[in-house]
Design a binder for these strands. Structure first.
Lengths: 227, 227
DNA sequence: CCGGATCCTTATAGATACTG
DNA sequence: CAGTATCTATAAGGATCCGG
């Protein structure tokens, strides 16, 4: 390792490991499972091949991820998080919750389908039962363009979020675009409108879907910088 | 801002704000209260004045901290976190808990007195009452060299940690060095030995102090990188 | 086409000295 | 004390190229 903070503080050590430019975003892209070099390059607009290669080498060396060769016929090289690398999850959660409350810099730009779904998990708060006493459990398959995800909610808790179609028939099946799904999650467009306008197709119990999109509450209190 | 990830992902936004080299460590130094430029420079070995100035300007611009002029006679310029900046605390906690489990890079180097005390808070877990039914509440004043801290534990929860002496007579008063305190916290030296050898002076109930140093459990499971 | 390596340019950080 | 100025070293950005 070249540049080091050289401190005994565990925070500084963490930053020695994942504090370099792009490093944490590379890890972010692996949160939902293994990815190929090409996938990472596409998901990280602006990263150059040299930097991506360097980060992958470093992160492998430090034990955050490892590369694995898929056997034929799928013959491909993929990168995936080690157990320790996957345990960065609380860091991502904390950073995401902090970032959405940024009082100065706005939250603008493209978001990958992965990030949208992970954001759902980050801001997911079991909706309070509100007296109806009905426990909320359901399975979902959400398709955003070509990216498909399966979700499972058990007793109001999001217990599964993975890439790929549902393994059994889901309670709700959704097909839409990234943009529409994000608008609905942000509350910018009511779910009913998106469906009525044909921008989202829903198969199954729509009230279960409504509960899902209501669950994350990305409130942005925007505290005054208190100069 | 010059370099930007340019994404709509809140994680990327957070990294745009505090992801630059040294930025998060500057914030770390302000977790226990305002500091002067000089204090920061001394606490961050290796940072150059130009970089420190730049980070302080940027972090102020983004609303993470603000500078304040203390009125005479204490006439000094200090930097302190905004409310939003202070809400980075979960990020530090997550990074610290992750870093101590690093399977490859070792945790070596100097640690500031502030970081040791904050580490105590990060890894503080109320010791299970273990059947004795005695609720643990106490006040402490810990002196490490010239740095003095006051702590308060209420019902097994660490409710106060601040720079400076206790405001009323503490239940336990400790005077020692950074190195000895850290060795005791790490379990490298038993509390009784440090006291017996005259490396730590304790006034008050020593069993209350034992509970305090036992509270943080910095277990390092060192998961195999699973190559 | 995938998985990078190479080359050149630009931006940022490190080192040191110096000033209001 | 609280920074700025200058110079150098390193890392990142941009484009191209290459082997399997």
């Amino acid at each position: 390792m070249t540049r080091t903070y050289g401190e005994g503080c565990p925070i500084a050590l963490s930053l020695d490991i994942v504090g370099e430019r792009w490093a944490l975003l590379v890890v972010r892209e692996l949160r939902l499972g293994p990815r190929r070099y090409r996938d990472l390059q596409e998901a990280l607009p602006g990263i150059t091949p040299a930097v991506l290669s360097k980060r992958l080498r470093e992160l492998e060396e430090y034990g955050v991820l490892h590369r694995r060769e898929l056997p034929p016929p799928a013959a491909a090289r993929v990168y995936e998080l080690t157990e320790w690398g996957a345990s960065l999850e609380p860091v991502f959660q904390a950073l995401a919750r902090w970032g959405v409350r940024s009082p100065v810099l706005p939250l603008t730009g493209e978001v990958s389908a992965d990030s949208i779904m992970l954001g759902l998990r980050t801001f997911f708060t079991a909706s309070d039962a509100s007296g109806d006493g009905v426990s909320w459990s359901a399975t979902y398959e959400i398709g955003l363009g070509r990216d498909v995800y399966r979700l499972r909610v058990d007793d109001g808790r999001l217990t599964e979020l993975a890439r790929g179609p549902a393994t059994t028939a889901p309670d709700v099946l959704v097909r839409t675009t990234k943009a529409v799904w994000q608008a609905v999650l942000d509350g910018a467009e009511p779910l009913a409108d998106a469906v009525a306008a044909g921008r989202m197709s829903v198969t199954g119990d729509r009230t279960l879907l409504q509960r899902l999109v209501d669950a994350p509450r990305k409130i942005r209190p925007t505290p005054a910088p208190a100069g």
